[in-house]
Amino acid sequence: MKILIIEDEPDLLIGIKDFLEKERYVCETASNFNDADQKLAVYHYDVALIDITLPGGSGLKLIEHLKRHTTDTGIIIISARNSLDDKLTGLDLGADDYITKPFHLSELNARVKAVLRRRKFDGATSVIFQEIEMFPDQGTVKVRDKNLELTKKEFELLLFFISNKNRLLTRESIAEHLWGDNIDLADNFYFIYTHINNLRKKIVKNRGNDYIKNVYGIGYKFTDE
């Protein structure tokens, strides 16, 4: 899978690139409008991450150009502006998703995977991790081929874990993934703790393994290592 990362802030660009390369994506980068425009015209990418504010032009223009000759590239807008207008315009132009700075790399990763799932397999695919199989479109989970009943948030949590398997998920990134970044909950960590405990119990009860590991007070890791 090939991803083009268009971002003018070098530090952030490297951070995103490193993270996604560990997920075994082939990553290319562009840090200004012209570079990005040329690369998008010449090569084919599975996903393009596009920053809206770029030296040399607007990221929204890039989406227009891209949509003119290819339609199967997934597009995720990255914006520092947190602006509703940009979001709506971007989605109107055909972007698949929208993420606002500052974001968690794990969140970006989950979004990239979701876009790929929708684009490449029309969503008709399952996400498999060992004995666990998730069907994001139907919202169902099977453990050892037996249905597992999960609440909505538990399902989102498990999908987030599997999308970021073997990686550290901080409690903050989990909270924002589950409840959005506009909700200021005082008991965040307690809620996450309870959700994770319930999820664990349900999986183990269905004869699955407990893959959720605590990582020294910072967060959790979903791993079979």
Partner: peptide, 15 residues
């Protein structure tokens, strides 16, 4: 926003 994004993403990789 940008420096904050860089700090937290770098910290996440460091962690």
């Amino acid at each position: 926003q940008t420096p904050l994004a860089i700090i937290s993403s770098r910290l996440e990789s460091l962690l």
